[in-house]
C-alpha cells in the first residue's frame, strides 16, 4: 500500500493526489467593495461583506457567497486576484466561477518564485488581438513544440446569469507531450502563486447576488487551482512542517520542500526526478558503516559507467579509501571479521626494534622485519640467530 515502494520494497515513482491547492488559502484582491462602506456592501458587516476569502472558502454556508469588487466607475478597470499556494504545485487546471455576467477579458498568470515574477498561462477574451496582441487559440492546441500561453474565448454567460472561467494546462500544451519526459512541460505546470487579472467587465449587472444591478463590478466565487503538490516523483503526500509550511513527505533518499535534492549521505549518483517507469532514487554511499558523510564525484561516476560516484569522507575505525574498504596505514584487515565490523582493522603493532618500519602488509599484517628477525610483528629472532645488544641489528647469526 506504499505508493512510493513496490511489494518487494523497491522504490517506484509516486505523486501526491490531485487537490484544490487554493482551498483555504488567502486571496489578495486589488479591489473589494465595502471599503469604505457603500449602500449594498459593507466589509465590516458580515451580512453585507463580500470579502476575497469567499473565493477560497473551505466549507459551510455563508451569505453572501461571492467576492465583489468595488464599483469601477472609470478606467483602469483591472482587478487582480492573487492566491499564494504556499508551495510549488504542478497545475492541472484553474477555474473561477462568476456570480454575475463574466468579464469579457481575463488574463491568467503564474509565479514560480512566490510572487516575485509572473508569466502568463493564458488569456480569455473576445478580442484576443486587441487585448493581448495574440491570435485566438488553435482548436488543437499550440503549434509549437512546447506549451504556450494561448488566448481562449471569454467565459460565456450561463443560464443562471453567471459564468465559468476554466483553464486546463492540457489545452495549452501540444498533444502528445508527456510530463515525465518533457522538462519544458514540467516547468510550464510548476507554480507557487496564481493570479487572475480581470481586465474588462461586462456592462451588465449582477443577476445572481441579491445586490442591486451595478455596472463595472466583478463578482466571483470558487477560485479553484487543481494541481498536485510538486515532489518530483519522490513523495505521495505533502505535510505541514513545524512552522506550518507545506512540504513533501520525501522518500527515495531525497529531501527539500519539493524532494529536489539528495539527502546528505545519499549522493552515490546525481539527483533525478522520478518517472512512472524509473524511481531514480538517491542511493546511499557505500562506506561499510565507517563514515557518516560522503560527496559526489562526477569523474568517478562517469568512469564507473554511471553507476557509482560517491566518495566516503572521514572514514572511522582506522579504515580508509573511497568506500572505507581498506585499512589506513599502520593497520591491517582482520580476516576473521566482516569489512563492516568496527574492529575490522587491527593495529600492525610492529616491534619497535625488530621491525624496519611501522607499516605492515594490509592483508596479512606482516611487519617488515630487520635481518634475522621473524614473526608477524618482528618480535623474535629467526632460527639460527640470537639476540644482540644492538638495537640497530637486534638479531645476529649464532656463532
Amino acid at each position: 500500500t506504499d505508493p512510493c515502494h513496490d511489494e518487494g520494497g523497491a522504490p517506484r515513482g509516486c505523486v501526491p493526489g490531485l487537490v484544490n491547492a487554493a482551498l483555504g488559502r488567502e486571496v489578495l484582491a486589488s479591489s473589494i467593495c465595502g471599503q469604505p462602506p457603500k449602500q449594498a456592501c459593507d466589509s465590516s458587516d458580515a451580512r453585507r461583506a463580500h470579502s476575497a476569502a469567499l473565493l477560497t472558502f473551505t466549507g459551510g454556508t455563508t451569505s453572501p457567497v461571492c467576492w465583489r469588487s468595488d464599483w469601477l466607475m472609470q478606467a483602469p478597470l483591472n482587478v487582480t486576484l492573487t492566491v499564494s499556494l504556499g508551495k510549488t504545485f504542478e497545475l492541472v487546471f484553474v477555474s473561477l466561477r462568476f456570480c454575475s455576467t463574466p468579464p469579457t477579458s481575463v488574463a491568467l498568470l503564474k509565479s514560480q518564485d512566490h510572487g516575485r515574477s509572473w508569466v502568463p498561462l493564458g488569456f480569455f477574451s473576445s478580442c484576443c488581438d486587441l487585448d493581448y496582441g495574440r491570435l485566438p487559440a488553435p482548436a488543437n492546441g499550440p503549434a509549437g513544440p512546447g506549451p504556450e500561453a494561448l488566448c481562449f474565448p471569454e467565459p460565456q454567460t450561463q443560464p443562471d446569469g453567471g459564468g465559468l472561467l476554466a483553464f486546463s494546462v492540457q489545452d495549452s500544451s501540444p498533444p502528445g507531450l508527456d510530463l515525465d519526459s518533457s522538462p519544458v512541460l514540467q516547468d510550464w505546470v510548476t507554480a507557487t502563486d496564481i493570479q487572475v487579472v480581470l481586465t474588462r467587465p461586462a456592462m451588465l449587472g449582477d443577476t445572481r447576488d441579491s445586490e442591486a444591478m451595478v455596472p463595472y463590478s466583478y463578482s466571483a466565487t470558487e477560485l479553484q487551482v487543481g494541481g498536485r503538490c510538486k515532489c518530483n516523483g519522490h513523495a505521495s503526500r505533502c505535510l505541514l512542517d513545524t512552522q506550518g509550511h507545506l512540504i513533501c513527505d520525501c522518500q527515495h533518499g531525497t529531501e527539500g520542500p519539493d524532494c529536489g535534492r539528495c539527502k546528505p549521505f545519499y549522493c552515490d549518483r546525481p539527483w533525478q526526478r522520478a518517472t512512472a517507469r524509473e524511481a531514480h532514487a538517491c542511493l546511499a554511499c557505500s562506506c561499510n558503516g565507517h563514515a557518516r558523510r560522503c560527496r559526489f564525484n562526477m569523474e568517478l561516476y562517469r568512469l564507473s559507467g554511471r553507476r557509482s560516484g560517491g566518495v566516503c569522507l572521514n572514514c572511522r575505525h582506522n579504515t580508509a579509501g573511497r568506500h572505507c574498504h581498506y585499512c589506513r596505514e599502520g593497520f591491517y584487515r582482520d580476516p576473521g571479521r566482516a569489512p563492516s565490523d568496527r574492529h575490522a582493522c587491527r593495529a600492525c603493532d610492529c616491534h619497535p626494534v625488530g621491525a624496519a618500519g611501522k607499516t605492515c602488509n594490509q592483508t596479512t599484517g606482516q611487519c617488515p622485519c630487520k635481518d634475522g628477525v621473524t614473526g608477524l610483528t618482528c618480535n623474535r629472532c629467526a632460527p639460527g640467530f640470537q639476540q644482540s645488544r644492538s638495537p640497530v641489528a637486534p638479531c645476529v647469526k649464532t656463532p
Binding site: 616491534h351 619497535p352 626494534v353 625488530g354 628477525v373 621473524t374 614473526g375 618480535n379 623474535r380 629472532c381 629467526a382 632460527p383 640467530f385 639476540q387 645488544r389 644492538s390 638495537p391 640497530v392 637486534p394 638479531c395
Partner: peptide, 23 residues
C-alpha cells in the same frame, strides 16, 4: 623451533639514544 621474544632490557641504547622507543 619457537624463539623467545626480543628482550628490550638486553639492548644497549648508549649510541642510539635517539632511536630508543618510548615505553
Amino acid at each position: 623451533e619457537v624463539m623467545p621474544t626480543l628482550d628490550m632490557a638486553l639492548f644497549d641504547w648508549t649510541d642510539y639514544e635517539d632511536l630508543k622507543p618510548e615505553v
